[in-house]
Design a protein around this nucleic acid. Structure first.
Lengths: 344, 344
DNA sequence: CGATGTGAGGTAACCGGTTACTTCAGACGT
DNA sequence: ACGTCTGAAGTAACCGGTTACCTCACATCG
């Protein structure tokens, strides 16, 4: 508070009795400087506690920009885990990383992308599935071109590619494969009436999980039943509400549930409990994502390499990887939420 | 890719047929500009898709800096929830916010603080409890002075104040009060042998929770028993390991557990389950923090207003609030993890 | 011994904005 | 008709670094 005046490179130069160029060279590295001079400069830097201004540096020299990840909310484990992966890889690559949150608001997303353009971010990583409609496609295409024009790369995580000419990199999880596997797991435990909880038409993540669910049913010769596919958002509350509604309508006409993600499963389990249905004794359930709460619930689910997604996004952004779109594999984690009905 | 050249304010000025000052004024706001001129400029901005360079702006004008929050890991719900609060309040105040992670590494913490000094961050919010020793105190004091010299504010969350002359703001949770309350809850349910899980001498958060635990016992006339205070880190694995070790040594000599935080409780519950002890039937347990997994576990715990902590930290940093140190109240959340032993 | 080479260090232009100060055209006063 | 005031727009200095280019002392060589 007392000293609002900043120490600049000129102050250091003055104190060390050299020119600003020399100070910059000592700090910068490459240029040859006599040891004696270097020491004078370093002493002055220490004595004045000089900290170079990052903005001035960014302005004059072409230095690596920051890597930004944009998510709905860091309080959602799915995003937090991916963000963690981004942070780690960015740190490893010597980049500063920013985590920005939109709260799911398109307007905020737009102003954040604008902000990141102003910051001359090296890469912008957009995470999270969305309703892919024409409006969305148009918006993303705009982002992509605008960012490309500014020399930034756009990476989409868990979203479909935008098409040929659009400069955006893509990486995602194998949702269909995982959903197929976990549904097959229920089927081979003898379940035939399996409820899919989390239908969201147009929503890419959910759509591809439903696809895996249906293909597994088909493969096992179980006829599709639209009444077993119930809509719900991908959060805990929705899972709770949807399951409550279903159970209020009468006793369950299914023996197992495939929840679109673990949060949904968590809410559903609470509703089941309140209706006196224990997992797995009276109802089997599986989830998707394998976020930490799944462990506490002893939930059989599909493990997603969240941090790997984050790391891959950074690698793609920095050009370390060139295959795009890229799909990360998943695997099923068996815990105690499925009861075997025995061979029939 | 094709056009790596950036659009500058001079390009806009040229295209609009005005001077750069005029462009800056149109974009900046305050200065009076003829409507016709303004429109010419705005059209040029749109046609060229001009985005002002944030670094150049930061360099020339005194504009508000970013608000940075430094945590161990965003994948830990406790930190994620606080970070969420910071994000929200910062956004509301029109500030950019950065989330940085250290992974608990002191070296990384130091380089992050340095980085933030270079970025001329307006505020640096350090979150998370730590071992408060002389070395820590010295380090923080250095940070505080260095940041103050650069015009930034330092806010410590969940850490003790540094002393009179040190320019650091402080906000934290009422750990002792919450611990007292939740211990009293166990006591009034008839429990007398209560294990405290999560002893970490020197660790401020744990220390103050232990203090609340002890004072509640004392108040109820229950003699302290050092063998009921067991050490553990504040994560799930530690809780699991510590509880396993304790149960392997013989049948429990306690009827309830007070876990230092919910993660610890979660691990302990898993260990209990593996030893055939059900919660709450054969063992009562309470936690602390009320992070999302607590809900799935039906865990009675102490609710912490995480987002409020984040928001308060930002308000303190921006001078909207002046009381420091500040303590945020907590309240107990009763779920189904405690069995009443009945009145004696 | 003067021409040339070499390497440390200085000078100043530049990055892309903002803004204090200056200019200038038109409105107004006498 | 001429001086003055006013407000819009221009000029250029500045923010704090980096770096291309220049200088200069000294070592090297014919």
């Amino acid at each position: 508070m007392s000293t609002p005046k900043r120490v600049t490179i000129r102050d250091v130069a003055g104190r060390a009795g050299v020119s600003v160029a020399t100070v910059s060279r000592v700090l910068g590295g490459e240029y040859p400087v006599l040891a004696a001079t270097r020491n004078k400069v370093l002493r002055a830097v220490r004595e004045l506690d000089f900290v170079p201004n990052a903005h001035a540096r960014a302005l004059s020299a072409a230095r690596p920009g920051a890597i930004a990840i944009v998510v709905n909310s860091v309080a959602v484990p799915y995003y937090a885990l991916i963000a963690q992966g981004v942070e780690e890889q960015a740190a490893q690559e010597g980049r500063l990383s920013l985590i920005c949150t939109t709260g799911g608001d398109t307007g905020r997303e737009l102003s954040i992308v604008q902000l990141l353009r102003e910051q001359r971010a090296e890469a912008v990583i957009l995470v999270g599935s969305v309703i892919v409609d024409e409006e969305y496609r148009k918006r993303m295409t705009e982002y992509a071109h605008a960012l490309a024009a500014a020399g930034s790369r756009l990476v989409l995580c868990g979203r479909p590619p935008l098409g040929e000419g659009v400069p955006a990199l893509v990486v995602g999880f194998d949702n269909t494969g995982g959903a197929h596997a976990v549904t097959a797991h229920l089927l081979s435990a003898g379940h035939r009436r399996i409820l899919y909880l989390g239908l969201r038409p147009g929503h890419t993540t959910s759509d591809s999980r439903v696809a895996g669910y249906r293909s597994a049913l088909a493969e096992h010769g179980v006829p599709a039943d639209a009444s077993l596919e119930v809509e719900a958002e991908f959060d805990r509350q929705s899972g709770y509400d949807a399951m409550n509604r279903r159970l209020a309508a009468g006793p369950p006409d299914f023996t197992a549930i495939f929840a679109g993600n673990d949060l949904l499963a968590s809410g559903a389990i609470q509703a089941l409990g309140e209706h006196g249905l224990r997992v797995p004794a009276e109802m089997s359930i599986v989830g998707y994502d394998d976020v930490p709460p799944a462990q506490d619930l002893r939930l059989t689910t599909v493990h997603l390499p969240h941090d790997e997604l984050g790391r891959t996004a950074v690698r793609l952004a920095l050009g370390r990887l060139t295959t795009s779109p890229m799909t990360l594999g998943t695997h099923i984690v068996v815990r105690d939420s499925v009861r075997s009905l025995g061979p029939r």
